[in-house]
C-alpha cells in the first residue's frame, strides 16, 4: 500500500471557482461562483447544501470531469488538468457494469492499470470480503440488493488505492439500517486507510456523524461555501451512538441554523 501523504498538506484546493451551464432556453445558469475550499490530506470533509445547489458540480470539478469557467483547482499543490488521477469517485447513481460480476466490477480499476488478471482477481476478492460481500463474488449486479451494489462500488473505488475519495450522496437511496451499517463500515475503512474524503450529502446528521469538518454550501444560483464547522467528536465513532452525544446535538443546531436558511431560499427560488 502507498504511504499516505504527509498530514497537514493540502490535498484539494479550490480558489475562486466558477462553473455555469447553458439552459435549454439559451441562457446561462451560474451554478457555482467564487468557491474557495481546502481539504487537508487525510481529512474527512462533508459538504452539505440544499438539493440542486451544485454539490455534484463541485465534486465534478475536483474529479476533473468538468473544468471550471474561472478559478483554479489544485490537487496536492499542482493545478489539475483533465481527470484527477489521484482521486476516485463514488457516484450517486448505480454505475456498475451489468454484464460484469461483482468481482469483475471491483477489479476493473486494476485491469485498467494492467495489473495481471490473477493478481487483480485476488485483490478484488479481498476487497469484497472487506466490504462484507464474501460469497457474492460471482453475482451480477441485478442479483444484488441496492446496499450490496453500493458496497461493490465502494470496493471498486478503494481497490485502486486513491489518495482522495470523492463520494456523492452514496447512501442516499438506502434504507436506514443498511445505511448506518455502511456508514460504520466506511468509517472503519477510513480509520485504517486515512484517505482524504470529500463526502457530499444532503443529510446533516450523516455529515456530522462521519466528518472532521462540515462545509455548508449556499442555495444556487452562484452557490458557494457559506460556513465551516469543525466536528471534534471523539474517534473512532459509531454513527448511531455518536448521535446521542450532547455535543452532536449542539453542533447540529448551530449548523442547521445556517443550513435551514439556505434550504428555504432554495425552496422559494424553485428549481
Amino acid at each position: 500500500m502507498k504511504l499516505a501523504s504527509p498530514p497537514g498538506t493540502c490535498a484539494v484546493r479550490l480558489q475562486g471557482c466558477r462553473r455555469s451551464f447553458r439552459t435549454p432556453d439559451g441562457g446561462v445558469y451560474v451554478a457555482l461562483d467564487r468557491v474557495d475550499l481546502e481539504v487537508r490530506a487525510g481529512e474527512f470533509v462533508a459538504l452539505v447544501g440544499p438539493t440542486g445547489c451544485g454539490k455534484s458540480t463541485l465534486l465534478n470539478l475536483v474529479a476533473g470531469l468538468l473544468p471550471p469557467d474561472a478559478g483554479r483547482v489544485e490537487v496536492f499543490g499542482s493545478p489539475l488538468e483533465g481527470i484527477n488521477r489521484r482521486a476516485s469517485y463514488l457516484f450517486q447513481q448505480d454505475v456498475l457494469l451489468p454484464w460484469k460480476t461483482a468481482e469483475e466490477n471491483v477489479m476493473l480499476g486494476l485491469v485498467f492499470r494492467r495489473v495481471p488478471r490473477e493478481e487483480a482477481r485476488r485483490q478484488a476478492r479481498a476487497w469484497l470480503e472487506r466490504v462484507g460481500l464474501r460469497g457474492f463474488e460471482n453475482r451480477y449486479p441485478h442479483q444484488l440488493s441496492g446496499g450490496m451494489r453500493k458496497r461493490v462500488a465502494l470496493a471498486q473505488n478503494l481497490i485502486v488505492d486513491p489518495e482522495i475519495l470523492l463520494m456523492d450522496e452514496p447512501f442516499a437511496a438506502l434504507d436506514v439500517q443498511t445505511r448506518q451499517l455502511m456508514e460504520n463500515d466506511l468509517l472503519r475503512i477510513w480509520q485504517e486507510e486515512r484517505k482524504t474524503v470529500l463526502f457530499v450529502t444532503h443529510d446533516l446528521e450523516e455529515a456530522i456523524a462521519l466528518s472532521d469538518r462540515v462545509v455548508v454550501l449556499s442555495a444556487g444560483p452562484a452557490a458557494r461555501p457559506v460556513g465551516e464547522f469543525p466536528v471534534d467528536l471523539p474517534r473512532p465513532r459509531d454513527v448511531t451512538e455518536v448521535r446521542l452525544d450532547p455535543a452532536f446535538g449542539e453542533l447540529f443546531r448551530r449548523i442547521w441554523d445556517l443550513l435551514r436558511g439556505e434550504v428555504l431560499r432554495a425552496f422559494r427560488l424553485g428549481p
Partner: peptide
C-alpha cells in the same frame, strides 16, 4: 455516469471501447 466512472477508474479510450 457509467462512462465517467470507468474514466475515473483509469480507463483509456481503448479500455472504454472494450469494457
Amino acid at each position: 455516469n457509467v462512462l465517467n466512472n470507468a474514466r475515473m477508474l483509469g480507463a483509456t479510450d481503448r479500455d472504454l471501447l472494450r469494457h
